[in-house]
């Protein structure tokens, strides 16, 4: 046991360095995935087939092939076309494109789910389609799909471990290096699991906090019933 603790002290900072790279990969890919996913969602809602169909193909291609295959293809094939990416950026590219396909479906559903009556009201005030998106659809849809997006972020955080296959020095790869020195696979993988758990758990809490902060008071615990009867009384007197 004491051997384990001394080894842990020696290798833990090294594992954390890997975790830092994992977080970097996750945050950059999440940001990219959100932007591309949103654009793809809007495009898929277009009435123009020339916009809609290619995007449908895009979504299917990235969803229907394994992420690891996508990463290997990007890392090993792009250089053939003269595009040489480091493992890190190849990883970011693969994760971003893959995530954007999934998120576009999340966003598309959330956009469709915004009350058509409210959309009509916005249009009837004279808003342009862009203004309707900016002032009504995005604020409502983004908050509505925050929990789902949070879920995808956690999945992404863990999917980053696949990037170790294209020699990015993230958490899992650092763990393998530690094991090749210490031969203590059980304790090292256990540490890795704990670090992943801490990162995921913290993200889940953060998303929950974000959701509560961005959601208007109406969804916080407002006691509506007693208020309603009061209001009805006031209404009658007016």
């Amino acid at each position: 046991m004491s051997v384990f603790w001394s080894e842990l002290q020696e290798y833990f900072p090294f594992l954390l360095m890997g975790a830092k790279v994992t977080l970097e990969l996750s945050f950059i890919s999440m940001a990219g995935g959100m932007v591309l996913g949103f654009l793809a969602a809007i495009g898929r809602l277009s009435e123009n087939r020339l916009i809609r169909w290619p995007l449908e193909a895009y979504v299917e291609i990235w969803r229907d092939t394994p992420l690891i295959v996508q990463l290997l293809l990007i890392y090993f094939s792009l250089p053939e076309f003269g595009i040489v990416l480091s493992g890190f950026w190849a990883g970011v590219l693969g994760l971003t494109l893959n995530l954007s396909a999934y998120l576009s479906e999340v966003y598309r559903a959330a956009i469709i789910a915004v009350d058509p009556g409210q959309k009509a009201a916005a249009i009837s005030l004279g808003m342009s389609p862009f203004q309707v998106y900016r002032r009504l659809i995005v604020p409502q849809a983004f908050v509505a799909c925050l929990p789902t997006q949070g879920g995808y972020f956690i999945a992404l955080l863990k999917d980053c471990s696949l990037v170790s296959f294209i020699s990015v020095n993230e958490l899992l790869r650092h763990a393998t290096i530690v094991i090749s020195n210490t031969f203590d696979s059980m304790n090292t993988y256990l540490m890795v699991a704990v670090i992943y758990f801490c990162m995921s758990f913290t993200s889940a809490r953060c998303v929950g906090w974000l959701e509560r902060t961005l959601t208007p008071a109406r969804r916080k615990k407002v006691v509506i019933k007693p208020i309603m009867s009061e209001l009805a009384e006031e209404d009658k007197t007016l």
């Binding site: 009350d115 009556g117 409210q118 009201a121 916005a122 002032r135 009504l136 409502q140 908050v143 208007p216």
Partner: peptide, 8 residues
């Protein structure tokens, strides 16, 4: 159905 913007 009033159609007030529910987030505002």
């Amino acid at each position: 159905q009033f159609n007030l913007f529910s987030h505002q």
